[in-house]
């Protein structure tokens, strides 16, 4: 056991400041363990979300030394022993208290996406899909909704265009429906207009911070952008639309 110091943001929407806490740390400990020690020993009212402590629920999202990460999957051993680790809440969402932010905007976006509209079952009552046809949407369904990608997305974080773009999380949510072998809904217009696929400028920051290692940009957003381009910006189709007056 040795001692280690952490700089943790304390405060609410009114304001606040970083406070330093020193606790004992042991082998294999992660940042969330250290926060729990601080709670138990120094600040029982320190607010933090967490649940599974195994990288499966996506609750303990925070910014650790400026990087969006899960507290439960960030090992203290990854940082030099004498280094003071800085822990602060997600910047992109309104602060509630300490490390807890108001992420309700994300739930509202999910509700805007029309659910799966499955084609009828086969005569024997089964749905049939080949594994290779579902591999790519299963990648998107690994998402644990930690919203680290939303936190890092420039459109949401720096430009605060939550009114125009649903963010990477919900691009792959709609992507998994658009690429679903059973889905019958035409989702291209919504992807372009309401969900704002054009706002993403493919910096791949979302992919970099994804704790599930989902290739959000290359496998999700880019294919959706291509579908939008095929539909709306194909020169021959544009010409046809003009001729038909549509």
């Amino acid at each position: 056991m040795s001692k280690r110091t952490f700089r943790i943001w304390r405060g609410d929407a009114e304001g606040g400041e970083f406070e330093e806490y020193t606790v004992e740390v042991g082998p294999g400990m992660v940042v969330l363990d250290a926060i729990h020690r601080v709670q138990a020993e120094h600040a029982s009212d320190l607010a933090v979300r967490w649940n599974c402590k195994a990288g499966k629920c996506g609750s303990c999202s925070m910014e650790i030394d400026g990087m969006p990460k899960l507290g439960c999957m960030t090992r203290l051993g990854d940082y030099p022993e004498s280094h003071t680790i800085t822990i602060q809440p997600l910047k992109t969402f309104p602060l509630i208290k300490d490390l807890v932010t108001d992420v309700s905007w994300n739930f509202a976006q999910n509700k805007r996406i029309k659910p799966l509209q499955p084609k009828p079952r086969d005569a024997d009552g089964e749905h049939r899909m080949q594994q290779e046809d579902v591999d790519r949407i299963q990648e998107f369904r690994k998402c644990i909704e930690c919203y680290l990608c939303q936190d890092t997305c420039h459109v949401l974080r720096d430009h605060d265009r939550k009114d125009a773009f649903v963010g990477p999380r919900f691009m792959i949510r709609v992507g998994q429906l658009a690429m679903h072998p059973l889905d019958t809904e035409d989702r291209i217009p919504a992807i372009k207009e309401e969900l704002g696929s054009g706002y993403c400028n493919i910096t791949r920051c979302c992919t970099e911070v994804c704790p599930e290692h989902i290739n959000i940009t290359d496998n999700g957003i880019i294919p959706l952008k291509e579908r939008v381009v095929d539909r709306y910006y194909d020169p021959i189709k544009m010409l046809l639309r003009k001729v038909r007056g549509a």
Partner: peptide, 9 residues
């Protein structure tokens, strides 16, 4: 201790 807002304790 402290206020009722998101109070882990």
């Amino acid at each position: 201790h402290a206020a009722p807002q998101f109070n882990a304790g």
